[in-house]
Design a binder for these strands. Structure first.
Lengths: 301, 301
DNA sequence: TCAAAAGTGTTATCCTTACACCCATGT
DNA sequence: ACATGGGTGTAAGGATAACACTTTTGA
């Protein structure tokens, strides 16, 4: 008798509030929210996703995109009763609001503390990560050693290359191998960041990498902002997602120069300092290239 | 009784020979080769893919990557008997050899003649595509009209933007809407390129776009070349995939300068002209960035 | 008056692009 | 001799990154 196949739709639902990117998780279990794909009810996969998200959370999803389809047998050891589960992971954006149901917003840097360089290089990079990775490199024979060296250099940066914010997944996989995360087959010593069930943190890493990559050439940030915003808030939101500080002058010039955005004529009321002009996203610009590719302020080394 | 789900693994298998990118297709049906995922036999999706490819074609796949998962109910009208099919599309590279079984190599520009700019702008761009797209733009009311204008400009290029080789899928979808391809809901007038069954040409467009995008920052070309090659052959292969001619001097400088490649010390025997040095790919370079981002020789306008 | 944020101007540097030229071989 | 492809040098122009400075508000 052939094994039954079921399909789960996992969602990485992202919002930004208080200059902090957040992701919806089921809190004590440490899982991403998910729903079953129902071939009878759902005309397409995305329809299926939106159906269960609405039912479970009442959130209004904005842009949605497919991330990856997983089908490893040993992913989810619960279902070793003969049935088999595929899961299709999606990335979705929301303007933050309190969710219904058991899932809650969690800052995504709770899971990836080493990915937040907004206050400069995190202490754990020097104190924990680099020593551990160097030891892992040194532990290999000369052949394997050179491969590990290159991989470490690419992931954790060096004088010439610097830290590349997009390599979130590569770093997670490296740290998994090195034993720096709780999900590792052989965790050694102190373990970094909040763990998740199964391979969910790996999926989250994929999502963060995708978001960061998209920042440079697709207008994704605007999905996470209200209709009107100051240029400064736009910059802070990009910085929150990218995990680095950007150069103010160049940022504004780029954004305004690319005509991504137009002034509303109104000004933001609150806060200390000079009131800022409010801008809105120009929906009609599908933007050929280089939406937001800006220089990092303090060279990430 | 709930509907059964089956999962097909579709493959876009790519090779390059005689400076022509080719793709494996089942000839009279106009379909991409595919196999069923067998949850009992296949530990992972990629294992399943490799299994049926080996069984059906005897080809040795190199690098394999997932493209997209499709689940639309009305994709494949055959299975309207109650069962439901998901399909997961993969992109795979091979060094060309004759396939076993019913599938055959076809030049990918048979399906996308407008994507080959190696001999300059194809005649059908001026003669068929631009008039048809302009008519489609003009046919809309002023609101919709501006959207269509931008989309047309982005896809088919203009003075400032030029033709972007990566937008293969966007162009296919545009032409589908305009009625320029046989798969359109409402094809009008002459129809471009070889058609395929269902949405297979759309999948192929996705694959070509992915390959072209990857050229710039991942060492994919080398999967399609023999171990040793001349820089000129490397350039011709990249040009074949990208569909544009590249600048010789800059190309060599970039490739050699990035240390992507090392000289073997031997020389290619054949052909007219000075014998060229043979190079080999340096496997150990995972390459941080900018693998092959070279200037186009004749500005694509 | 000072802190905080909004804004603008300018320059050094590097990368991209394009052009020009010489080299080695077969016919 | 010349056609064909191999291979190198270099300069103009533009994008990027960094620095410096002025302006406008609230406390």
């Amino acid at each position: 008798m052939p094994t039954d196949l079921a399909v789960a739709l996992d969602a990485v639902i992202v919002a930004v509030s208080d200059e902090e990117p957040r992701v919806l998780v089921r809190a004590p279990e440490g899982t991403l929210p998910a729903g079953l794909f129902d071939p009878d009810a759902d005309r397409t996969l995305e329809v299926g996703l939106r159906r269960w998200v609405t039912e479970q959370t009442q959130l209004q999803l904005g842009h949605v995109e497919q991330l990856y389809t997983f089908g490893d047998r040993d992913r989810d050891p619960q279902h070793s009763d003969g049935s088999r589960m595929l899961s299709i992971a999606y990335l979705a954006f929301v303007r933050e609001s309190p969710p219904a149901g058991p899932a809650r917003w969690r800052a995504w840097y709770d899971y990836f503390p080493w990915e937040d360089w907004r206050q400069g290089r995190p202490a754990l990079v020097d104190e924990v990560i680099r020593p551990a990775v160097e030891a892992w490199v040194a532990a290999a024979g000369s052949e394997e050693r050179r491969l590990r060296e290159r991989r470490a250099r690419r992931c954790t940066g060096t004088r010439k290359a610097g830290w590349n914010p997009e390599l979130v997944l590569d770093r997670y996989e490296l740290f998994w191998e090195v034993g720096l995360v709780a999900e590792s087959r052989a965790p050694r010593g102190p373990v970094l960041g909040q763990a998740m069930a199964g391979d969910h943190r790996r999926i989250l890493a994929t999502a963060i990498g995708r978001v960061r990559g998209a920042l440079g050439y697709r207008p994704v940030v605007f999905e996470l902002l209200p209709a009107d915003f100051t240029l400064f808030r736009l910059q802070r939101t990009v910085e929150a997602l990218a995990g680095v500080r950007l150069h103010k002058g160049n940022f504004r010039r780029l954004v305004v120069g690319a005509k991504l955005v137009e002034a509303t004529g109104r000004r933001a009321a609150e806060g200390p300092g000079r009131p800022a002009e409010l801008y809105r996203f120009r929906r009609d610009v599908v933007a050929e290239r280089n939406i937001l590719r800006v220089s990092i302020n303090s060279p990430a080394r």
